Computed example of a mutant assay.
Amino acid sequence: MPAPNQAALDFLMTRRSRPAKTLQPPVPNADELRPLLQAAARTPDHGKLEPWRFIVIEQPAMARLSQVVQTRGAALGLDPDQIDKGRAQFDQGLLAVAVIESPKPSEKIPALEQTYSAGAVCLALLNAALASGWGANWLSGWPSHDRGFMTEALGLASHERIAGIIHIATETSAAPERPRPDLDAVTSWVSA
Rank of each mutant, 00 (worst) to 15 (best):
W138V: 03
D91N: 14
Q114K: 06
W134Y: 08
E113P: 08
G77L: 13
V99D: 00
P179K: 15
V121L: 06
A61W: 08
A174Y: 00
G133Q: 04
H159D: 09
T187N: 07
Q82S: 13
S106I: 10
D182E: 09
F149G: 01
T71S: 15
A98E: 03
M150Y: 00
S117T: 14
S144P: 01
E177P: 00
A129M: 15
L139D: 00
I83S: 04
D146Q: 10
L130F: 05
G119P: 09
M62P: 05
P176K: 15
Q67W: 11
K104T: 14
P103C: 01
A136N: 07
V99Q: 04
G86Q: 10
G155S: 11
G164P: 01
Y116S: 08
W138P: 05
A129L: 13
G86H: 14
A169Y: 00
L112G: 08
D184T: 07
A129V: 06
T71G: 01
S140P: 02
S140R: 13
F149A: 07
T115C: 06
A175E: 02
D84G: 09
K104M: 13
A163C: 07
E160G: 02
A157P: 00
A157H: 09
F90G: 00
H145W: 12
Q67R: 15
L76P: 00
G155W: 02
R147M: 10
T187F: 11
S140F: 10
A124K: 01
L94M: 11
S117E: 05
